[in-house]
Write a protein that binds this DNA or RNA. Structure first.
Lengths: 92, 92
DNA sequence: TTATCATTTAGATATTTTTCTAAATATCTT
DNA sequence: AAGATATTTAGAAAAATATCTAAATGATAA
């Protein structure tokens, strides 16, 4: 909740790659772990950072937890960047 | 030079505020320091982080150093975010 | 050329972050 | 119920970050 969290979340390469993976559709935590050379605990931490920033959401389905992109927070960041560049935004 | 540096640079509120200030035009280091309740040394550090990320440039003029926005790196970040949201970008 | 002003660099400390291993929780299967 | 699977939580260590004070650099002014 806030730009600091969002930008911090995006500043880690593992987390950016996770978002890229989720671009194609939801994945379980385990499927995400499989894409990295890192323990599940570490990926779990990254997922919680992303979730805390609002960049992803999750949904439990039985034994699995599915993660998926939530682009609304990314929209906010996008608008902030746009407004820095000239004010093509809300401008309220 | 890279998304990590850029996002890290943007993750600090002081640095985001500096960028906002520079949106209206160049300022000297001292003028920037005046806007914050923080030592010149600390602001100098933030300026160097921003510069290292490519978000600002500087130009020495006599006793002063002027800082100004460089939005080209911000464009890169912007495009990365856009591509995450659907691929309205270069997509190369 | 000495003093002053603008800014950065150096060094220190406290906090945050990343990653690991080990343990805990929750769910499914037998 | 016991065992196996999926994922998170706890706790620790190493590295990075933000901030401060004090000192260094560079440029103007007296």
């Amino acid at each position: 909740m806030g730009f600091a969290e969002t930008f911090k979340a995006l500043s880690d390469p593992t987390r950016r790659e996770i978002l890229n993976l989720l671009k194609s559709g939801p994945l379980t935590a385990g499927e995400i772990v499989d894409q990295f050379d890192m323990t599940g605990a570490s990926i779990s931490h990254h997922l919680s950072v992303l979730k805390n920033a609002g960049a992803i959401d999750d949904e439990k389905k039985g034994k699995f937890i599915y993660y998926y992109l939530n682009s609304s927070v990314l929209d906010d960041v996008l608008n902030w960047l746009l407004s820095l560049k000239g004010g093509t935004t809300d401008e309220k």
